[in-house]
Each structure stands twice: as C-alpha cells, then as structure tokens.
Design a binder for these strands. Structure first.
Lengths: 236, 236
DNA sequence: GTCTATAGCCGGATAGAC
DNA sequence: GTCTATCCGGCTATAGAC
C-alpha cells in the first residue's frame, strides 16, 4: 500500500523486493531443467554475478560487442562454467529481458492497485516507474538499448511492453478526463510525453547525477510538469 | 529566414540544404588526402551509398554487429573498394558522427538567428530540431545509439553536443524568465524536459508513424506543452 | 578504381579432464 | 561444478591482379 506517496524513495526500495538476488532466484527456479547446477545457493550466487556482469559490460560496449570471454574475466568463471548456466549468448539476452519485464509489470500493477483517484494513480505510476528504473537502472538501460537487436518474437514482446506502460497512462488520462478532473486535448500524445519523461531518467542518468538531482527531485518535477499540462484541479 | 514558422515542414526541407549528398561532398573535400579516389563525382556517389548503408544496417543490428561484408553487400562495393574511402571501421563511425553534429549545429544556429523574442526563439528551436531529426532521422537514431560505444574523445564530443543543445534552451528560458514572459521554477530541469521531448521523436518514430502522427502535429504538440509548462503569456 | 585472395585474429560453442 | 583445450567460422585489414 502506497509505497511511494510523497516520493519516499528509500521506503520504496525497502518495501519492493527487487534485489538482483530475488530476480535470479526466480530465474533459477524457472530454468531448473536447462541449468546444469543443482545446488541453489551456488547457482543463484553465480547467476547474480553473470547478470550483473552482462549488464555492466553491455552498458559500456553493447551486448553484441561483449564477448563471452569478457564475461569470463568479469565473473571469474570459465567458458565451460558459463555454458552450465545458459545455453548460448542469445538465450542469455532473452532471459534477462523477459525476467526484467515481468518484474517491472508486477511492481507497477501493485502500485496502482492501492490508489484511488485518477490523479493519484497517475502520480503513483510515475513515481513508481521512476523509482523502479533507479533501482534497476542497468536493466532499464540495457533493455532500451538492445531492443532493436532482437529477434522477431522478442522484439514484439519489447514493443508490447512499451505500449502496455503507455496504455496505463492513456486509460488514466481518459478516465480523469471523463470525470472532468483533467483538461486534456490529446490523451495519447500526452501519455507519450509522460513516457518520454520517464525514460529520460534512465537514459540520461549521467546528466542528472552530475547535476546532483536526486530521484525524488526528478519525480517531483515530472509529476508537477504533468499536472500543468493536464491542468489537474487538486494538484499539490 | 524563418524556415519553419507555423510548422511548415515541407518548406523547411527545401530551404535547408541537408541532403545526404550535400553532407558527403563536405566529407569528401575535408578528407581528400585520406580518400584514394580522385574523381569527385565518383567519390561522392559512393560515399552516399556507404553512409546510407551504414546508417540503415546499424539501425537494424547496431554498428558493432554490422560487418564490413554486410556493408559490401548493401553498397555493391568490394572490401578493397571500401578501404579506398575510409581507413577502417572505427574511423567510418567517427566521420559519420562528426559531420552530422556539425550539420545540426549549423542549422540550429541559423534558425535562431532569424527570430526575435525568447518565446519565438524557443519555438523555432523546437520546430527546427524536430524537423532536422525527421530529415536526418537515421543519423539521429544512430548517433544516440552508438554514443556509448565510442572512444574517450569521441564520447566527450557527443556529450558536449548534447549539452550544447540543452544550453540553448536553458539560456532562452533564463532570458524569458528575466523578461517576465515565462514563469519557470527550474530552467535547467525544464530544458532537460524539452530535450527529452525532442528525442522522443526520433527514438520512437515507429510509434508515431503507426499512429499516423505527422512531424508537424508532433512539433505543434510539443510547442503547446512547453507553453503550458512555462506559462508563456502570448502563446498561440 | 575496383576486384579477388588471403593473412591473421578472435568469436561462440563443445568435449573431456579433474 | 568447473576448467582447459580445441574446432571452426567470420571478422578486419591488406596485397596484388586487372
């Protein structure tokens, strides 16, 4: 309930169980058959290493340019060991993307369920999205950058995910518009604009970091900007 | 003068001499020493082929993943011929990025020079940027996507270019604020927001295409959204 | 100017030792 | 479970024919 009202990032971070270990445990359990390692503690520990290393290396040079030998160096594992955890480079990419999408969807759904008015829901969705993208920054960046290099099926999933988030905003804008709370000319375009602002946080994080702007300040600014654009009545 | 007042994209396209051929002629003349082809007509014709093919292939799989053999297939040239035009894959990347940045800067500077009030300048800068990114869409996408894979010096240039555009908006917002025309809480953050909207046009073009939104509609929407956020008095 | 042929290297993937 | 050794294909780059 209300993980991030008033923009408390720290409390969000604690209440949302989205550590890398959490994610890797899920991945392990879903892929028990493919993964050749039987002891869960060992497997999860190394999966964390592998995924973190993949995200870090890809952030620097891109997934395609990252070699599995780079990955060996970074994780301390050998080529042979790596192949005990995933069946090939392409699959490694897909597993990371799939699991991340699920996690994000789950958290967004939860955040919305506990809000009431359209404006509260929009505000919560914005804050939650920005906070999640802060915690899982490397994943978000990765996911955006690699989207164009995927196979046909994977690309569809990525697009669906993008449109899913946007649809949440479109529906909320429509609802608030019908209730007469917002004054909006074009809900679809407005939702696109919101998405663009959300994305900027993880695409240009270096910039905001350098300027000393915190996640909470950014979220506040975005919520405020949206309230001006849609002319929400009871905006804080 | 006033290339794109009232958002006339077609007239902008004509007046701005930024065809690929134009760009390639400049590149050829600046790299006469490195390029082994003497006849300008032949050289420029093939440079156009090479750069267009590079942008197209990179859009699909990324520059790193694009092989020079892919490039041969796409251009109809052989490996040997390619190396008569550029000294290596890395340099090809740098040449494309450098020349594009120059072109964009030149056009933006020109567009601003012919406007008067702060709001007119902001509006013109927004429209011009969106229109340029429409004409040179592939270059903009390429430039954004490959930025992280560059060498140290090239990366600095890319960041400088990003901040340069943003600075234009920060200064204009400050100026209008001082004149009492805008009501802005945070010019730096507002400029970031504007940049995010500009970028969305070339990062998510597939989405806008699918929805049948034209460049002009998008530019109108962005200008309008900005006017609401900064509460400009004489906004249309 | 443009081609073909080839050098030399590095990538992903696998087999089999420990 | 993890490692080393190795296969083989594709890559960039260059040399030399036409």
């Amino acid at each position: 309930m209300n993980r991030c009202k008033q923009g408390n990032f720290e409390s969000f971070k604690k209440s949302a169980a989205l550590s890398m270990e959490e994610i890797c445990r899920e991945i392990y359990q879903e892929n028990r058959d493919r993964i050749r390692i039987k002891k869960e503690t060992v497997a999860v520990k190394n999966l964390v290493k592998i995924f973190n290393a993949t995200l870090a290396l890809s952030a620097k040079k891109g997934f395609q340019a990252m070699s599995l030998r780079d990955l060996c160096r970074e994780t301390g594992l050998s080529m042979g060991a790596l192949y005990a955890y995933f069946p090939g480079k392409e699959m490694l990419l897909e597993i990371i993307l799939l699991q991340g999408r699920r996690m994000v969807k789950k958290i967004l759904d939860e955040a919305l369920a506990s809000e009431n008015t359209s404006w509260e829901k929009i505000s919560a969705a914005v804050r939650t999205h920005i906070y999640v993208s802060e915690v899982l920054h490397e994943w978000f960046f990765f996911s955006f950058m690699e989207a164009k290099n995927l196979g046909k099926e994977e690309q569809k999933a990525a697009i669906a995910s993008e449109l899913f988030t946007e649809k949440i905003f479109i529906d909320l804008l429509d609802a608030g518009s019908a209730e007469g709370i917002f004054k909006i000319e074009n809900p679809v375009m407005t939702a696109s604009l919101i998405k663009a602002m959300l994305q900027d946080w993880y695409l240009k994080r270096w910039k905001y970091r350098k300027r000393g702007i915190s996640v909470e300040e950014y979220a506040d600014f975005v919520v405020n900007a949206i309230s001006k654009i849609i002319r929400v009545a009871e905006a804080v």
